[in-house]
Design a protein around this nucleic acid. Structure first.
Lengths: 243, 243
DNA sequence: CGTATTCAGTTTGTCGACAAACGAATTGAG
DNA sequence: CTCAATTCGTTTGTCGACAAACTGAATACG
């Protein structure tokens, strides 16, 4: 993405040290960028993450690159073949039911907890992301929808106050972006509007502290999403994509 | 008493003059050993993980040490202070309620799933760990109790077939070893025997595929454990341990 | 006497280099 | 012409070195 221009080098002769990059930021930068690229499918599942190539692209040594890769592997977003190379983690469609099961439970648990533990200032944040989602739907911007939807539910989870649930939920939602991204490009506009309404109901239940209702609404919301993705998969026979 | 040197805590058994170790094993070895030491409280929470010291102890360069530390940090077992050093993660007793909440839910969910998805050969494994736990109770070996109890429930979780739940549950149980270890040294022998009975009931429900009963039993089992730990904490006013 | 500053000392973050391990291409035998 | 052994090239795993950033003590200044 960042192509080096030789004229730049010549123009910057008077600067002795070239890469002004704060000390601890190397690995962190690479980690965040790679992570983003993987979740956005800019890096396809299975594509190799070559250390020397990356070190050239990011204009730094292999060491910070390596640290970023180790972190990604620990997070499950990449996989290292010993003595060989590291590749972007593949999406295993056979594990989708299990993924949906976990996702649904986390939807329910975090929303229920939020209804019990929410504080006023957290509701402001939640409402902000709710509006952002509605706005993205209005503009039919699928990417912003995904982002705002994620932020909305993560905010609810944080209001729930259980960091273990929040962590798992966040990971599930982020991992889901790789699936959702396919999904969100292929449906009509009716569903996002329905989700906006469902978000409204959830916020209402959370704010009023109605835990059981919040739980039920979250369950239905999750079921709605799962149903749509499943129908899309069934429709297009993506089953043989063994990425 | 706070000035413990990590040297004696990680006694190196390796002596013969050949530092030949298979290529990819360096970082992995350090990671596993440090992880074990942290979970066993051989490395106290808050104690520093100095890279050069560790590299001397393990007789290897700082690079594999560093990779191990990065992994531990990613897993939440250590924390890096930028440009300073890395320390063993502290146990935050204020987060205990949240921990118990997550632990209880995972007990329930994994046991329920096992009752639905278990296969015969998995029951064999489960019964094996069940016996191992009973045996450890018989021998009054607290360490083996912790280990067998963990293996028992992880085996059940694996029979449940949801890798997301298994992963979170495993992490919770392992993290819990740091707490359980204190706990298991301080109670009378009555409770472990009760746990043996509860394990028996759970296995029975799982084997018969009675999901609701398995769920309820797991919930009660978890509540029992939580109750005991809480009473222990209340009894000894450990509240000011700000590790 | 208290506060700000300077000056070591220590530990990390990053670098370039080298050799092991593995896959692919090449060669040789049947 | 097929298949096995060998060589070659590429990528990783590990190493030692160096400079930056932070800590804490010692010092100067009000």
């Amino acid at each position: 993405m960042k192509t080096q221009d030789t004229t730049d080098k010549l123009a910057k002769v008077d600067q002795p040290g070239k890469p002004d990059r704060t000390r601890g930021s190397g690995a962190q930068t690479v980690y965040l960028q790679l992570r983003q690229a993987i979740l956005e499918l800019a890096l396809e599942p299975g594509s190799p993450l070559d250390e020397v190539t990356l070190s050239e692209q990011f204009e730094m040594s292999r060491t910070p690159i390596r640290e970023a890769l180790v972190r990604l592997v620990a997070e499950g977003l990449a996989k290292t073949l010993p003595n060989r190379n590291t590749v972007v983690a593949t999406i295993d469609f056979a594990q989708l039911p299990v993924y949906f099961e976990a996702l649904t439970l986390m939807y329910r648990v975090t929303t229920r907890a939020a209804a019990i533990n929410r504080r006023p200032e957290q509701m402001v944040t939640i409402r902000g992301f709710e509006a952002a989602y509605a706005d993205a739907v209005e503009r039919r911007d699928a990417l912003d929808m995904i982002q705002a939807n994620r932020d909305f539910h993560v905010a609810i989870a944080e209001a729930g106050g259980n960091s273990y649930f929040t962590a798992l939920f966040t990971r599930l939602l982020d991992e889901g972006r790789r699936i959702l991204r396919i999904y969100y490009q292929s449906f009509d506009d009716r569903l996002p509007h329905q989700y906006v309404d469902e978000h409204g109901s959830i916020v209402d239940a959370v704010e009023k502290g109605e835990a059981n209702r919040a739980d039920a609404l979250a369950a239905e919301h999750a079921a709605q999403i799962v149903r749509q993705i499943q129908s899309y998969i069934a429709r297009d026979t993506v089953s043989d994509i063994t990425l």
